[in-house]
């Protein structure tokens, strides 16, 4: 029963995103908003009825899960990229809260520092420098939105079809984990005991215990990426004439109709 409700919800959600997608003729934002909020409410109601055990944290879970989905929808449908970036910051903050609810504080704060503090600011930097001449056709015309929505939500539906089986898995299955997982000698720290010493300490012991080599490799990966990024972006390239009118050098400011 649950998968079929989910399929219907996903179909409606896909329709909401389709309506909200930027189109040259203008998008039906109000209808999309109503439909989207309805779908999110349905999804959360389903979660509350079927999956979630009653708990005081659940209110925050529903609030931030709903907000995350709504903001994510806005990121992919907003015609102005700067707004996409702002909504993306909202997604990051919501996901960080959801991680805190799962007692992964260190991961949550790392997420905020890395994404909201570094990655997103750089994106915003490039967007601001590039988007000086108002809305362009790049942002007002989506590319095959119907097919994209169909493909994506079929994948999500495939996960949803199996969601009931996850619920059936016992929560404490340390004894039955497959051999491949237990090959790595990890001090299993249950969330209950983890609270005593703190998530940071526990995750530090894992990172610098069994995963030490991976940590070193990620360091090397970051170094290579840094060298690569510098090498790419310092390259002098010829400017191709695209035929589009260019702003005179130094002119900043975009045409916005007065409100």
């Amino acid at each position: 029963m649950i998968p079929y409700i989910l399929y219907v919800l996903f179909a409606l959600g896909g329709a909401a995103i389709y309506l909200a997608m930027p189109k040259p003729s203008g998008s039906q934002r109000r209808a999309a908003l109503v439909l989207g909020v309805g779908v999110i409410a349905g999804l959360l109601a389903l979660m509350s009825m079927h999956f979630v055990a009653p708990n005081s944290n659940n209110f925050f879970f529903y609030m931030f899960a709903g907000l995350a989905i709504l903001a994510a929808g806005r990121v992919v449908t907003h015609p102005v990229p700067t707004y996409s970036a702002v909504y993306f910051a909202l997604v990051i903050l919501c996901v960080a809260v959801l991680l805190v609810i799962q007692r992964a504080e260190f991961l949550a704060v790392a997420l905020i520092i890395i994404y909201a503090g570094a990655i997103l600011v750089t994106y915003a930097f490039v967007i601001m420098l590039a988007q000086q001449s108002g809305a362009v056709s790049t942002d007002t015309r989506a590319r095959e939105p119907l097919m994209a929505i169909l493909v994506s939500f079929v994948i999500a539906g495939a996960i949803a079809g199996k969601i009931e089986q996850i619920d059936a898995v016992p929560v404490k299955m340390t004894a039955q984990v497959p051999q491949a997982v237990t090959d790595v000698p990890i001090e299993t720290t249950l969330p209950a005991t983890e609270m005593e010493s703190g998530h940071t300490k526990a995750i530090g012991e894992i990172m610098f215990g069994p995963y030490l080599v991976v940590v070193e490799l990620s360091g090397i990966l970051l170094l290579i990426a840094m060298v690569g990024a510098i090498a790419i972006s310092r390259k002098q390239v010829p400017i191709e004439d695209t035929g589009e009118p260019k702003l005179p050098v130094g002119q900043i400011g975009r045409e916005v109709p007065p409100f």
Binding site: L107, M173, T174, H199, I203
Partner: peptide, 8 residues
């Protein structure tokens, strides 16, 4: 699974 591998 009651472990911290996923966090890593």
């Amino acid at each position: 699974h009651g472990r911290l591998t996923g966090d890593a």
